[in-house]
């Protein structure tokens, strides 16, 4: 890492959004906005996002990582996280990246709900979206989190005795969840999202193209919904390589 090449800062309305800008090395090419997933996925992906940002910045791309309102280091409580606000914050982050880098052409990358947010943020004018295991069915996603939260209540690896139902209510895997977010996620449907240019799929077995989307198998499963690995980082060198290669090609 070059000293000063990664700059932490706050931006946006009332300087409430945390960002980490990775200055590009060498000839500036285009820019990459990295949209984080939500909840525990965000914490699990932090290291991978940093590794990817560094790898891409070394290839000449300006990169911005950031946290939505109510997540990570940004202002707001976890219970205040809302889908519409995540989308608005993404638009603000894209503008910030353009202003900092002087590059108008911005590509977005996102994992899980981070991909879904990027695919929803039409006002951000992304030239491309790279989506890794995007959440396309909000109700299915909520059902899986509700099931994991119910299992957590009785997780003998975590608690010495099962917890009361009230203790685990209105939360998903460590984070308070408000009703507005539940309602907004329930309305999340694939037809409301633009198609990504590249979809990296942990479960696919062969590369293929659907419409304008190139689908690339990751070559390894990603343990998003495994309670036993809830606090283990998600790391993937194949993902970093795939995104880097795609950006080289698209630049």
């Amino acid at each position: 890492m070059r000293a000063g090449s990664e700059s932490p800062f706050f931006f946006g309305a009332r300087s409430g959004l945390f960002g980490m800008y990775h200055a590009p090395e060498g000839q500036k090419r285009s820019a990459l906005l990295m949209c984080p997933p939500l909840g525990q996925d965000l914490i699990r992906c932090h290291r991978l996002y940093r590794q990817l940002a560094q790898a891409v910045a070394a290839r000449g791309f300006a990169v911005l990582r950031f946290d939505y309102h109510g997540t990570g280091d940004s202002a707001g409580d976890s219970a205040d996280v809302q889908w519409d606000r995540c989308v608005a914050d993404t638009v603000a982050a894209a503008a910030e990246l353009r202003a900092r880098s002087g590059v108008d052409r911005v590509i977005a990358f996102g994992a899980r709900l981070g991909a879904s947010v990027a695919l929803s943020a039409s006002e951000a004018r992304f030239a491309d979206v790279i989506a890794w295991d995007a959440v396309l069915d909000g109700q299915g996603y909520m059902a899986s989190l509700d099931a994991l939260q119910a299992a957590l209540r009785e997780d003998a690896g975590r608690f010495t005795r099962p917890r009361a139902h009230a203790d685990v209510a209105a939360q998903w895997l460590g984070f308070a969840v408000g009703d507005p977010l539940r309602r907004q996620l329930a309305a999340l449907r694939p037809e409301a999202l633009r198609a990504p240019s590249l979809a990296i799929d942990s479960t696919a077995t062969t590369p293929r193209t659907e419409g304008t989307t190139r689908i690339l198998p990751l070559g390894q499963p990603t343990p998003w919904n495994d309670l036993r690995r809830l606090e283990s980082a998600i790391l993937s060198h194949p993902l970093i390589r795939a995104v880097g290669d795609y950006l080289e090609e698209a630049a």
Partner: peptide, 15 residues
């Protein structure tokens, strides 16, 4: 805490 970045487990350190 462990390898978790400065926000802490489940954002404990932020809170």
């Amino acid at each position: 805490a462990g390898l978790v970045h400065r926000v802490g487990p489940f954002r404990l350190h932020v809170e």
